[in-house]
Design a protein around this nucleic acid. Structure first.
Lengths: 202, 202
DNA sequence: GATGCTATTTATAATGT
DNA sequence: TACATTATAAATAGCAT
């Protein structure tokens, strides 16, 4: 892409590297965003610029939420994590700190306390709205039909339920047949596939 | 990109969604890989497919190293750097205009403030736990079957989905009666019935 | 360093097999 | 059903500000 084809190897010039990083980072963020919306998927992206600056992205769920989901997977699905316990502890601590500890002990001025409280209240509000939306969506799947009023809605729900049911039936068949565990492709595999320009398929 | 311009919104068809996910995931992995080489940077990407399958990628350092680096940053840095300029949703706006905020700024003594903060934090924690549980239940209904591991669970979900589907179909009939539209069984329904019959014969 | 501008390369939506 | 092809949209390398 661009005036000339670029070899994929470390860019030696610091300036060029920084420029390329800045441009490609934006492109990458856009693509991650698009994928998360198009496919309604949990994606988390964490990157450090050559200068060590952090950029992170996640879709509708927070990076912490996705990391939590990631870390709570059975180990064989996630691959080998050497310092899993450290991460899990840290993440728990983080979730706790982000709400309780740091807020309570480090504030020194009235305004920063107010600001903290405001942040917390916003977080609660956000959480509750999210919870209510999630519950509402769940209700339909659990047979509560009272909030449906139009033909479009019923049909939409019918389609979704059928899709979900098909998935579950597929899963049942899988479980009944051989109990094969889906392998998670490793980094090395991914890199190899990318270099071969023959990528893995889902 | 492609024959036609695509609107960035959730793809409703489960098949199309899966296909798009698969293609775009490969594109994304390639771009992440290239950026990590070109700019010699730490990048971690974690994503869950619509079916709940995990894909993760990182450059020269492992995902857990990058997560460790990420989690060991001071919280304010993580917060400030958060790059979600693509996600200016109405929900976030709602949160900002939240009326709760005003309720939060009236305490006067230090200890009562601390108490309030603690309460708020506990509420957030409770909310988040509840939210995570609800999301988990919802995931199954939305076709992510990855967290089901036992036969009992699949069968339980199958029963629940069938019940919900019957409710929805009943509701549809009611609405159809009101609208005087004659009923035609959907393709999905027919497919499902066939699959169930085949299934029962075993 | 960031931004804007093309000429090109690259990614991919729709289609074909 | 899944994989290959193609026409088109999108990203971006090299330059110029």
């Amino acid at each position: 892409m661009g005036r000339a084809k670029l070899k994929i190897k470390r860019i030696e010039s610091i300036v060029d590297r920084q420029v390329t990083f800045s441009k490609r980072r934006n492109g990458l963020l856009k693509k991650v965003y698009e994928l998360s919306i198009l496919c309604d998927t949990d994606i988390a992206l964490i990157m450090f610029s050559p200068a060590g600056r952090l950029t992170m992205f996640s879709g509708k769920n927070s990076v912490e939420d996705i990391l939590t989901r990631f870390l709570s997977l059975p180990q064989h699905q996630r691959g080998i994590m050497c310092n899993q316990e450290f991460l899990q502890t840290t993440l728990q601590k983080l979730n706790y700190e982000s709400s309780l500890a740091s807020q309570c002990s480090s504030s020194s001025s009235r305004s920063s306390i107010s600001k903290n409280i405001e942040d917390l209240c916003n977080e609660i509000k956000k959480c509750k709205i999210q919870l209510e939306e999630t519950k509402k969506r769940l209700r339909v799947f659990e047979g509560d039909v009272s909030e449906i009023t139009s033909m479009n809605e019923v049909e939409d729900h019918e389609v979704r339920l059928n899709e979900a049911l098909n998935q579950v039936i597929q899963k049942k068949k899988t479980l009944e047949g051989k109990c094969r565990i889906s392998e998670v492709p490793s980094n090395d595999q991914i890199v190899r596939l990318i270099q071969q320009e023959n990528f893995c398929r889902d």
